[in-house]
Amino acid sequence: MPENTQEGFIDQQKVLDNEEYSIKNTQSIIQKAVDWFRARSMFVLAYGTGCGAIEMPPIFTSRYDIERLGVVGVATPRQADILIVSGYCSYKTLKRVIRSYEQMNEPKYVIGLGSCTINGGMYWDSYNTIKKLDEYLPVDMYINGCMPRPEALIEGFVKLQDNIRNAKSEAGYIQYRENNAFYRANQEKIFGKNTTPTFEENFAGMNQ
């Protein structure tokens, strides 16, 4: 597996396209069944950070009807499987996004919607908007565009379901757990210390 480095985003894309990196073959049948259910039922916490929030409601309407794919919106991060970060994230928003992400229960996935989450988009020289979402949160699926159409979002969901079902790569939450120091350092770089409750505190009970 390539490191999650400066070029991590590009490298992961390569991994997804290449069958031989797939971890599917190492999994048991039970795990495959579990993954099937996880792909079949997705609860979305649609966090409307930026202008992309306006592209999300249409996918639940009769024109696009994403409920066909088992995707349902929920209000609280506790029940959500997927966090959609829709558009630019300012510092203040990112803090809430990270907080919501950490309150979600594993397995959890992040979809970055729009160019702003990829490279800052039109806010590339803004003083308080982050440029790369995957420095702070593990992103499982990027959907580019400014703004992407609802069809693109649906395509993103289908691709993500495919990734989960076929276990093409290690899910983001595992990276977040294992490389937490990396993410934490990046978060602290812009927030300073003690601005959100730390990951270790939240999940200290895991080992009990």
């Binding site: 985003f9 590339w124 020289d125 803004s126 440029k131």
Partner: peptide, 28 residues
């Protein structure tokens, strides 16, 4: 702006580009 410790950002002596270059890495 939470926890903002720099010059207030809309004052003209605040150099936005320098600040951004210092604080963010751009994606290749």
């Amino acid at each position: 702006l939470e926890n903002w410790n720099e010059i207030p950002p809309l004052r003209r002596e605040f150099d936005t580009l320098a600040y951004v270059n210092e604080h963010f890495d751009f994606r290749i």
